Simulated assay, not measured.
Amino acid sequence: MQSISRRQFLASTVAAGAAGVVLPLISPRAVQAGAPSIIRADTRVIEVAGRAANVFGLVQPDGTHGLVTPAANDFRVRLENALNVPP
């Protein structure tokens, strides 16, 4: 069995710790997490049993309703309040 010196052990421990800090910063997942998605809380009118109903909902910048994101992704979102009530 090969032995290592205390200096080699400490140097390898510091290198492993630094890798644990630096690698997540440069990983593709960290790059993807960049800017948050923007959604707007707003009201809209839908038809329920032949009658108009005002409902609350989330609207994406492209006009689609709701928010869909893969489960494996980090969830970063900025919510803009377009309701007539304070947050």
Results as ranks from 00 to 15, higher is better:
Leu58Gln: 04
Arg76Tyr: 14
Arg78Ser: 15
Val68Trp: 02
Arg51Ser: 10
Ile4Ser: 11
Ser3Pro: 03
Gln2Glu: 03
Thr43Gln: 14
Val48Thr: 11
Leu25Met: 12
Asn84Phe: 03
Ile39Cys: 04
Thr69Gln: 14
Leu25Cys: 11
Pro61Phe: 09
Leu10Asp: 05
Phe56Tyr: 14
Ala82Tyr: 11
Gly50Tyr: 12
Gly17Thr: 08
Thr13Gln: 07
Asn54Arg: 09
Gln8Asn: 12
Gly20Asn: 10
Pro86Lys: 11
Leu23Ile: 13
Phe75Asp: 00
Gln8Ser: 14
Arg76Phe: 10
Thr69Met: 13
Arg29Ala: 13
Ala33Glu: 02
Thr64Glu: 13
Gly17Gln: 02
Pro61Trp: 06
Arg51Glu: 13
Glu47His: 05
Ser3Arg: 03
Asp42His: 07
Pro61His: 06
Glu80Arg: 02
His65Ile: 10
Arg29Pro: 00
Thr43Glu: 14
Val21Glu: 05
Ser3Val: 05
Pro61Thr: 06
Ala15Ile: 11
Thr43Ala: 03
Phe56Ile: 12
Thr69Ile: 08
Ala19Ile: 14
Val77Glu: 07
Ser12Asn: 12
Arg51Lys: 15
Asn54Thr: 10
Ile38Phe: 04
Asp42Leu: 05
Phe56Pro: 03
Val59Glu: 15
Gln32Met: 07
Pro36Tyr: 09
Gly66Tyr: 07
Val55Asp: 12
Ile4Pro: 00
Glu80Val: 07
Gly63Arg: 01
Gly57Lys: 02
Ala18Met: 05
Leu25Gln: 15
Val45Cys: 02
Val45His: 08
Ala82Thr: 11
Ala19Gln: 04
His65Asp: 13
Gly17Trp: 01
Leu67Phe: 15
Gln8Leu: 08
Ala41Met: 10
Pro70Ala: 15
Gly50Val: 05
Arg44Asn: 13
Ala71Val: 07
Ala53Met: 15
Pro36Gln: 06
Thr13Lys: 01
Gly57Trp: 03
Val55Ala: 07
Val77Gln: 09
Ile26Gln: 05
Gln60Tyr: 02
Val22Ser: 02
Gly57Asp: 08
Ala52Thr: 05
Phe56Leu: 13
Val59Ile: 13
Ala33Trp: 00
Met1His: 06
Thr64Val: 02
Val55His: 05
Ala33Thr: 06
Leu23Asp: 06
Gly20Asp: 08
Ala30Glu: 11
Leu67Ile: 08
Ala33Met: 01
Ala41Ser: 05
Ala52Pro: 10
Ala19Phe: 13
Pro86Tyr: 03
Phe9Asp: 02
Val59Asp: 04
Gly17Phe: 08
Ile26Trp: 10
Val77Arg: 08
Ala53Ile: 06
Val14Gln: 00
Val48His: 07
Arg76His: 15
Arg6Thr: 09
Glu47Lys: 09
Asp74Ile: 01
Ile4His: 13
Arg29Cys: 04
Ile39Trp: 02
Gly66Met: 04
Thr69Cys: 06
Pro24Met: 00
Ala53Thr: 14
Pro28Met: 00
Ala33Tyr: 00
Ser12Glu: 10
